[in-house]
Amino acid sequence: MNNFFQAAMLLLTLGCLMCLYRIGRGPTAPDRTISVDILGTLMVGFCCCMALVTGQDYYLTVAIAWAMTNFVGTLALAKYLEGRCYDA
């Protein structure tokens, strides 16, 4: 059981490295914004693995809170990209 989740978290780390590559390399600002969004969604996957490895369910609370802050931050960056004020 632990080997399975270790392999899953290793693959998720690989995905995080790909996202970090796109954040550093990405030619435009929307590339970086999308990559940050994807990175946050991958963190929810990490929280799933940790919840199953440790058997504690508060990791899923962390996952819900992380998804919410990720959503709000991405929407703020999207408003900024659209080239107008935050309250328009």
């Binding site: 959503f71 408003k79 659209e82």
Partner: peptide
């Protein structure tokens, strides 16, 4: 929804 907003901004 977040991806749609970012792409609209892009």
């Amino acid at each position: 929804v977040a991806a749609h907003a970012v792409l609209r901004g892009a």
